[in-house]
Simulated assay, not measured.
Amino acid sequence: MKLDKPVPGGPCWTELGTSDLEAAKGFYADLFGWRPETDPDKEAGGYTVAYLGDAAVAAISPLYQESQPVAWNVSFAVADADATVDALQDAGGTVVLGPMDVFDLGRFAVVFDPTGAAFQLWQARSFPGAALFNAPGALGWVELMTRAPDRATEFYTTVFGWSLSASEDYPQWGIAGADFGGMVTMGEHFPHEVPAHWLPYFAVEDVDDTAAATVGAGGSMLMEPTSVPEGPRIAVLRDPQGALFGIYLAGDER
């Protein structure tokens, strides 16, 4: 990812909703070297921020609703959450929650694009988002998986002003020339019940070792370690509770 800090329209944070908070904290601490700190305030509902050193890099939280899936969620920075929600709805998106204030940290909303992919909007106040990108254990890429790429392109370029490269093999999203993610068309090899979704990728020092460690800890591999032509070495994994995430070789950004 060519972005190294949160910018308007770009990915700024990723958080996991999980069915077993303590197990997930231990799994990712071992896998990525995270130091998880759970907010003791009851109003925070067990929300846990993961750190690398002093840098906040991601979050883990319990499931807050019965209908909420075990999944990683991607947040995009916006200057005005309410105005973005209006633009999003005009472009065919839907709002699940918010916009609402999160203490003095910021204002957020949970939304769906017209192709069914959920994501979050984050209007920063005291908390801008991740303090580290592209380093081992930190977020370094986001990928939209969708069955309607043309509709997704129209939506995201309208709402966020993103650019999209002309590559047929792997179109990439960007802001002012800085690519931060890609888009994959979900073909017949994707099970019908798998919805469109955003997939976060974390940088790691060794893709093969991290994939093996995931399996050893009770997770699984959806895509085994693969070297992408003219791209990084990557893998797509599932944690022991069922959440999907990607990894790629640090320093080998797209």
Results as ranks from 00 to 15, higher is better:
Pro136Ile: 11
Ala203Ser: 14
Gln68Met: 14
Phe127Ser: 11
Met223Pro: 05
Phe32Gly: 03
Val96Ser: 12
Leu237Gln: 03
Lys42Thr: 13
Cys12Met: 10
Pro128Glu: 14
Pro99Leu: 11
Trp141Thr: 04
Met145Val: 11
Asp20Asn: 13
Gly137Tyr: 02
Gln123Arg: 12
Gly246Asn: 03
Arg125Ser: 15
Leu237Met: 05
Pro62Phe: 07
Val159His: 03
Arg254Lys: 12
Gly242Leu: 00
His189Gln: 13
Asp252Ser: 09
Asp179Gly: 08
Pro128Leu: 08
Gly231Asn: 07
Asp30Glu: 15
Ala71Ile: 02
Gly246Gln: 05
Ala130Gly: 13
Arg107Phe: 07
Ser165Lys: 05
Arg238Glu: 15
Glu168Tyr: 04
Pro36Gly: 05
Glu224Thr: 15
Ile60Cys: 02
Val70Pro: 06
Pro195Leu: 00
Gly129Thr: 03
Gly93Met: 09
Ala130Thr: 08
Val228Trp: 03
Ala87Asn: 10
Ala138Ser: 14
Gly174Phe: 01
Asp101Gly: 13
Ala44Lys: 07
Val215Arg: 11
Ala124Asn: 07
Ile247Gln: 01
Pro149Glu: 03
Thr48Glu: 01
Gly216Trp: 01
Asp104His: 12
Asp101Val: 09
Tyr170Arg: 07
Val194Ala: 08
Ala213Val: 04
Ala23Val: 07
Asp239Leu: 04
Gly106Asp: 10
Gln120Val: 10
Phe202Leu: 13
Asp239Lys: 06
Phe155Lys: 06
Ser227Val: 11
Ala211Pro: 02
Trp173Gln: 04
Val159Trp: 02
Ala77Asn: 01
Phe133Glu: 01
Met183Leu: 13
Leu88Ile: 03
